[in-house]
Design a protein around this nucleic acid. Structure first.
Length: 419
RNA sequence: CGGGGUGUAGUAUAUCGGUAGUAUACGUGUUUUGGGAACACGAGGGCCGGGUUCGAUUCCCGGCACCCCGACCA
């Protein structure tokens, strides 16, 4: 992508109506656009990051048997009445609207009912189970107060997987696999070192649910972490009894603020019961399906990465989710420089390196450096009269202070070995 | 939903009951090009409704929007 064709540009000023670091940096750098409180559009750079995150999650879900599909946003009132979650007195953050004929419909705020209703058509035998469908979609919640930039919005993009198992044992095996898959997701997204599996309220059917909490002052949750064991307890279930049952020592637990980037929990028969979601076992006997749910908000994950990985100059994207692999800067109006830079750009593209090429002619070197730091692409390669005189191109990681000169061959090899 | 605050140009801000200023971004031109270059010229602005007033962007009332704290968060 040539930067001269990128329709966004960076801003010098921070937006006056955003306090949170994630929104400030993402808006300044041109990744997102604020539409209203709690509602953001993703611009070309931002969408590239979302897609990278989406692919990581998709790979991890497919690896444990997930099957991607897409449930509708419009929701049927009758379906939700079965589980008693249509009533505003039960769920107060529905967005509801009406068809022209007066029929009430809702906009998805979660997916359990939709999946249970669909699966009822297809699950009738033990041979049909287990199944693990999931989707990525936009979710709508009429929050009384949105806050913290893209960490808590009224419209957000998430992945939700639901497990449908024959019995508790089968469910538990999958649950553990999902737990590991979730660990993989956050490690691959570059925040594994700050993310703790956190024991939280489990509802009716399980003692605990598990949240994946990333340490940051921007978080809304208070958790108590055991650094050695790498686990934590959410404040909502932080009691002596729970601490003891988990084999933890109160004296070693440290209170921290964190943001919930993912959660998994066992639903038991909470939804299969009202939907009468049953299967016949080998003996022809009816059994209720055991469900579990596994969610992660992609926008929130993206915002969390920005919260924990930035410096005073801008964002520092992990390579796995960066909008581009490499930021190529051509400095000066010198013809040879620009020709060399364009040539290198083409070669990088043919080597399947994702490049943002700052080919803007009338932009000063300082401005290009500042933009590059703000946008936060992992590798920066500078082509200039000076670099060419010194034998090639200057490469520098976003995390490094100083770059070094390499020739074209070294550059291409370096990128290959780094994947 | 309770409390507090703020609405001025694409963005960030200043002043003011009587012609709304600056920076940045933008357009044109000249000179610049390794850490947000310089100069000149140009274009662009008072959230909505009502009231007070000769005159309101400013004061008052209502609305709407946004931000913060709290409550809430399937």
């Amino acid at each position: 992508m040539k930067q001269s064709h990128l329709f966004t540009k960076t801003k010098k000023e921070s937006p006056s109506d955003e306090v949170s670091l994630n929104a400030e940096l993402l808006i300044k750098a041109g990744f997102i656009n604020k539409e209203m409180a709690g509602v953001y559009s993703f611009l070309p750079l931002g969408l590239r990051v979302i897609k990278k995150i989406e692919n990581i999650i998709r790979e991890e879900m497919d690896a444990i048997g997930g099957q991607e599909m897409r449930t509708s946003v419009f929701q049927n009132k009758e379906v939700w009445e079965k589980s008693n979650r249509w009533d505003d007195a039960v769920v107060d953050n529905w967005f509801k609207t009406k068809l022209q004929n007066g029929t009430e419909i809702g906009l998805s705020f979660t997916n359990e009912e939709a999946y249970a209703d669909i699966l009822k058509q297809y699950i009738s035998s033990y041979k049909d189970l287990p199944v693990y469908p999931y989707d990525f979609k936009n979710i709508f919640r009429n929050e009384t107060r949105s806050k913290s930039g893209i960490l808590r919005g009224r419209e957000f993009y998430w992945k939700a997987l639901y497990s449908f198992s024959k019995n508790e044992e089968e469910h538990n095996i999958f649950y553990e696999k999902a737990k590991q898959a979730y660990k993989n997701i956050f490690t691959r997204a570059g925040i594994g070192h700050l993310t703790y599996i956190t024991f939280a309220s489990g509802g009716t059917f399980a003692k605990f649910s598990h949240e994946f909490q990333t340490l940051t002052g921007a978080g809304e949750d208070t958790i108590y972490i055991d650094e050695n064991k790498g686990i934590a307890i959410n404040k909502e279930v932080y009691t002596d009894e729970v601490i003891e049952s988990l084999g933890l020592d109160k004296d070693t637990l440290v209170e921290k603020r964190a943001i919930e980037v993912g959660n998994i929990f066992s639903l038991g028969t909470k939804f299969s019961e009202p939907f009468d979601l049953k299967y016949k076992d080998e003996n022809g006997k009816d059994n209720l399906v055991i469900m579990g749910s596994y969610g992660v908000g992609l926008g929130r994950l993206m915002g969390t990465i920005v919260e924990v990985l930035s410096d005073d100059k801008g964002i520092i994207w992990p390579e796995s989710v960066a909008p581009f692999d490499l930021h190529l800067l051509s400095l000066g109006k010198d013809e040879i420089t620009n020709k060399e830079a364009s040539k290198l750009y083409e070669e990088l593209l043919s080597n399947k390196v994702e490049v943002l090429y700052d080919d803007r002619i009338d932009v000063s070197a300082g401005e290009k450096f500042a933009d590059s730091d703000l946008i936060g692409i992992p590798y920066r390669v500078v082509v200039s009269k000076r670099s060419l005189e010194e034998g090639g191109f200057e490469i520098k990681k976003r995390t490094e202070e100083k770059g070094r000169i390499v020739n074209k061959e070294e550059l291409l090899n370096l990128l290959k070995t780094n994947g």
